[in-house]
Design a protein around this nucleic acid. Structure first.
Lengths: 346, 346
DNA sequence: GTGTCCGTTGGAAACGTTTCCAACCCACAC
DNA sequence: GTGTGGGTTGGAAACGTTTCCAACGGACAC
């Protein structure tokens, strides 16, 4: 059962291949031709070959999402938001997980193959090589994260500073004064900016002391390990743990539990990203959402917009954080604090 | 900066296009030609165009994963397992989320476009139309789930019967005798087989009574709602809830918590899939893993094997379940029970 | 010197589309 | 009757590869 091509359709309809193509694509063609061609196509069960179409048109109708860490639910949230936008726009979504920094650069460079029309990338680490690769990419790239100011790429950012501000202010308003920050790797984009946000917020608060530690990975296991050491050695010195993401927060929650500390009575704990994990843990993990789904959606839309209009000015969009207060930080009924949205373009 | 094609490379190397192609692809060519062509390609930064290559070769070097419900972590586990295999084999992975049954059929039919070389599909509902579409697909399709016996498609199945058996046996051995099963939609593959497994297990046990209810979706919210009603109306009649998946289990856990029932003292709760959610909830949710990651891996490998050797006999592989005992069902230290692996081919 | 064989090469076809361009037809105006 | 113009049409080129096939050249045997 050989492939049905447009040549077969044209023959059956008694018209030229050119006319068949025009009729099927809604270009200029007489009503009669359209009717004949449609009928022939239907009878033969014709579907245009995506490979041939891609070659001829120079586009694949595919977009890529380069995901940093597929084990982290926050990236899954982003991905599904992206998938929704992409599918609704008649594109397909190609998923690639970026390994280390070198592999990420390679991935961006592989865009030269022309297998997608554009890419959304959420890199964990933004190296100079990566910035260079992105600027030389033959198709549009939208970055979920931070880029140098003059990079000239569409960017969607989280507002880590205000996010951490919401967390710290909340803890302070709950009477916590001695905070410990458990960060992930500090050479990553989230690690760097969340630490920075934490420091600013602490500096702005009165009578608040803080200590900072960092772990090698944004995972539950790493968070648990670090929290156990921290709580064993310095439990008396702190009354709240600010985790750099939900996974570390969950790890800390478990560590506190295993060490017999009562949460939130003895220790308040907060996370970042407001993933489903924070929602289902008991007590619920207070967490500041940085709008992962929203960022994913915006990135995908920015990408589509740029493909549609390559000359448009680059945009940098920042998504407002939302604090979700749950049982891990407060005994009262939980509530929600949303920062005002902010948006900027360059 | 126009695309650099193999024609440019050939010119620069002073050879024909045919020779350039052969040299780059490691076909017959003299050492000298290879050297010249490689040098030219490197100087020009040549990369073969995936679109042209796809058309000529009739394959795209892409595989698709049609995921039933991207909001359920178990499918994310499958997806990342698939991604790993696919990426390691020099293929790309295209993700499509299948909506309802009609959309799923459409998706399979869209394989006629030739945008991928094969597909792994995990359909929630297997309709006759879907079976027909799969059997007529122009590229190999591997099904994660159940297919009619004579469908002649490679299939990777979970062993729901034994999985539910492990759960029920565990509860019974913990002294539970009055079980409630909260199922998801019963017209889905998991709904049907998990219910069936539950019934068999209960029938095989002594002195065990059971009730069954079903909800409209395998979600936390649905599980919570159903559990609240169930526990309010019939809390006295049951001592354990067997949830059809972890999401429903988590919902039940929260419902019990909110209603002041102690877990596991008053009520034991179990889930299915052994997702990260079961692991992080407190108490941990006892859950029987059906080998999602393993099934994903096997499906991807089966697909690659069939592409490599189209004539090979169809295979049906069943992955053994593993019971993960956690605090939601037992006060003793948790433990793990693995069923023996089983494999069958047709 | 002629013939044979093998390794290498280049021209051209092919993959299935879309689209350029010239040709055509017909209606209408002059 | 001739000319003009708009709407349709078909042939052929083009997208960038890979691969078929015929031709070439040199080495070797006779």
């Amino acid at each position: 059962m050989a492939r049905v091509t447009i040549i077969d359709v044209a023959k059956r309809a008694g018209v030229s291949v050119a006319s068949a193509s025009r009729a099927l694509n809604g270009l200029v063609a007489s009503a009669e031709t359209v009717q004949k061609v449609r009928a022939a196509a239907a009878e033969l069960g014709y579907t245009a070959d995506a490979r041939a179409r891609s070659l001829k048109l120079g586009r694949t109708q595919q977009l890529a999402y380069a995901v940093a860490d597929i084990g982290n639910p926050v990236y899954v949230d982003m991905m599904s938001a992206i998938e929704r936008v992409v599918a609704a726009s008649d594109y397909r979504l190609v998923i690639s997980s970026t390994g280390d920094a070198d592999a990420t650069v390679e991935l961006v460079e592989s865009l030269r193959r022309g297998f997608v029309d554009g890419m959304v990338i959420s890199p964990l680490r933004v190296t100079d090589e990566l910035v260079a690769a992105i600027s030389e990419a033959p198709v549009p790239v939208v970055v979920l994260g931070r880029m140098p100011d003059d990079s000239g790429t569409d960017t969607v950012m989280a507002d880590s500073t205000r996010g951490m501000g919401l967390v710290v202010d909340h803890l302070v308003s709950e009477g916590r004064r001695r905070l410990a920050f458990i960060n992930g790797p500090e050479d990553t984009t989230p690690g760097r900016f969340r630490l920075d946000g934490f420091r600013r917020a602490v500096a702005a608060a009165r009578n608040v002391s803080s200590i900072e530690i960092a772990v090698d990975d944004f995972t539950i296991a790493e968070g648990y390990g670090a929290a156990v050491s921290l709580l064993q050695e310095r439990a008396g010195e702190i009354d709240a743990v600010v985790a750099a993401n939900d996974l570390i927060g969950i790890g800390t929650l478990h560590a506190a539990d295993d060490l017999g500390l009562r949460v939130p009575a003895d220790l308040a704990i907060t996370g970042v990203d407001d993933t489903e994990l924070a929602q289902v843990s008991r007590p619920g993990l207070t967490s500041v959402g940085l709008g992962a789904a929203e960022r994913g959606r915006l990135a995908a839309e920015l990408l589509l917009a740029r493909i549609a209009e390559p000359g448009r000015p680059e945009q940098t969009v920042t998504v407002a954080p939302t604090l979700r207060v749950r049982g891990s930080s407060v005994l009262r009924a939980p509530h929600t604090v949303t920062a005002f949205p902010r948006e900027a373009s360059a």
